[in-house]
């Protein structure tokens, strides 16, 4: 059997795919930015010596890391509104799930970085009267940022891929548009292949940079 490819449908479909791509990027930026900040806050809880701060932070991180993201998104879309008493839009539910999921992973990256800094650095800063917050900002984070960068880039890449799951909540991002279009035109082979390529073009630069960065950091040590 010989299949005849027909990529002309792509020309028709492209504006719609592009609109989907925009939603994908929106979802990614939102979840990554908030996920990073929230992750930092959680990591502070993770390294705290107080058990009543530490234990919930561990629970939070472990729950998000030990359940599938898709289950989390579905939970936030179908289950969470019930306790909330208010329906969430697909986009809000997806953004919420992706953000919290990302924050749990980022918390572990931050924690790993922060505890890798020798105790003497904290003491040196303390001895000249710096508060914990000042020390974190001026002494600890600047030293570990570079070390954590590859891990954060990897997280960004994972997140970009995971945004596709929002399509299953009917968020009209690129994957969703791709599926819709492939049933409209009945050309799933062409359209899904193109969707895969669009993702590749979107994500590859990031992973290329991350790999280079990792090599450079490894060479320097």
């Amino acid at each position: 059997m010989e299949y005849t490819w027909d990529f002309t449908v792509i020309v028709d479909a492209f504006p719609v795919l592009l609109r989907g791509l925009l939603v994908t990027v929106e979802l990614w930026v939102l979840a990554f930015a908030i996920g990073l900040s929230l992750g930092f806050a959680v990591s502070l809880g993770r390294i705290s010596g107080r058990p009543w701060v530490n234990a919930p932070a561990i629970g939070y991180v472990e729950i998000f890391r030990n359940t599938p993201v898709l289950v989390q998104l579905i939970w936030f879309y179908y289950a969470f509104p019930i306790v909330l008493g208010q329906q969430l839009s697909p986009f809000t539910a997806a953004a919420l799930g992706l953000t919290l999921n990302t924050s749990a992973y980022c918390a572990e990256i931050f924690r790993g970085g922060i505890v890798s800094i020798a105790r003497g650095q904290w003491e040196g800063a303390k001895a000249i009267g710096m508060t914990r917050a000042m020390t974190m900002r001026r002494v600890i984070l600047p030293q570990v940022m570079k070390r954590m960068l590859p891990a954060f880039t990897n997280r960004g890449i994972e997140l970009a891929k995971v945004t596709s799951l929002a399509s299953l909540l009917a968020v009209n991002e690129i994957m969703y548009q791709g599926r819709l279009l492939s049933s409209t035109y009945y050309r799933p082979l062409e359209i899904l292949t193109v969707v895969a390529l669009v993702y590749f073009v979107l994500i590859y630069p990031g992973s290329y940079l991350s790999a280079r960065l990792e090599r450079r950091l490894a060479a320097r040590d």
Binding site: T163, S164, P188, F200
Partner: peptide, 16 residues
Amino acid sequence: RNTPPLVHFFWFFYAL
């Protein structure tokens, strides 16, 4: 490494 798993699922089920 640079494409989402969900795309692979759909591709193998609907496209291939």
